[in-house]
Nucleic acid binder design. Sequence first.
DNA 1: TCATAAATGATACCTGGTATCTGAAGACGA
DNA 2: TCGTCTTCAGATACCAGGTATCATTTATGA
Lengths: 147, 147
Amino acid sequence: MRKRGYPLSEQLMDALEERGYRDTAPRRTVARAIAEKERHFAAEELREQLPGIGRATVYRSLKILVEAGALCRVLLEDGNLHYQLSHRGHHHHLLCVECGASEDLMGCDIEDRLESVADAHNFQVSGHWLEVYGKCQTCRAELPASA
Amino acid sequence: MRKRGYPLSEQLMDALEERGYRDTAPRRTVARAIAEKERHFAAEELREQLPGIGRATVYRSLKILVEAGALCRVLLEDGNLHYQLSHRGHHHHLLCVECGASEDLMGCDIEDRLESVADAHNFQVSGHWLEVYGKCQTCRAELPASA
DNA sequence: TCATAAATGATACCTGGTATCTGAAGACGA
DNA sequence: TCGTCTTCAGATACCAGGTATCATTTATGA
Ligand SMILES: [Mn+2]
Ligand SMILES: [Mn+2]
Ligand SMILES: [Zn+2]
Ligand SMILES: [Zn+2]
């Protein structure tokens, strides 16, 4: 996602324009708010930050940004769904259960690895959802007792 | 989960009693309804079937049955969460996107396989969530064109 | 049997959406 | 620049899937 040279919020707008969506003031506002997020966030959290924007518009923007690949959904260990700026294309997340940090994991070969077990069930794999939970580098260092 | 000899609904109640929950009429009613389910189901679907049971009771029952390991949550490809009778212990699901059939996948070694990539990120894996989508044996046979 | 703790169900509230609709704003050709 | 056409915005209502509160009922076991 992140490229140097011009604002992230513009890159989000570009991703929408590429898909034929118009460049509107509310969408720019949403894009700017998302671009400032340093971590995954809940939909409602974003909406609270944007009292001037209609609820439906916030949710619609999230939806089309996910479709455009600019945002991805992250399933937290507690079952809550968050949104996050992320790499395009298929990938997974290493989610720290201590601090919430999330690291993208590119280069997924899960389906290759599932081949043999799926074959045994005569099941043809076409997709998957994987989230990985644990402790990040920083949190391991801070809590050496349980690291 | 399923053992021979006595009703599945009784096994659900047993799972609750093992955890110190009381044997009550509403819980038996919920357990009986769940025991009759041949597929994963939505919470609201179950509630509609049980108009005599309070909404909170239905949701509380689902929650404690999941905690007791008698039920598991299944994340469908469309993002909806369903519940399903299932094996105890860690496992995954092969979910057919055509017919909705779900097959349990025991013997998960995902975390072992993630070791090396997690190590590269200095990340200590403690858990994961995986759902596998595709086409089941039956649906592959019925639609040979795209199988 | 009876005290106690736990469970129920009504109600209200919350998050995360979607459907519908009217009016506003963008795109674009003349 | 204007008019038209389409999309979009925001209000509102609604839905699914929950949780918190609390008064009343029920199960359990001493
Ligand atoms: Mn991501
Ligand atoms: Mn299962
Ligand atoms: Zn961390
Ligand atoms: Zn199938």
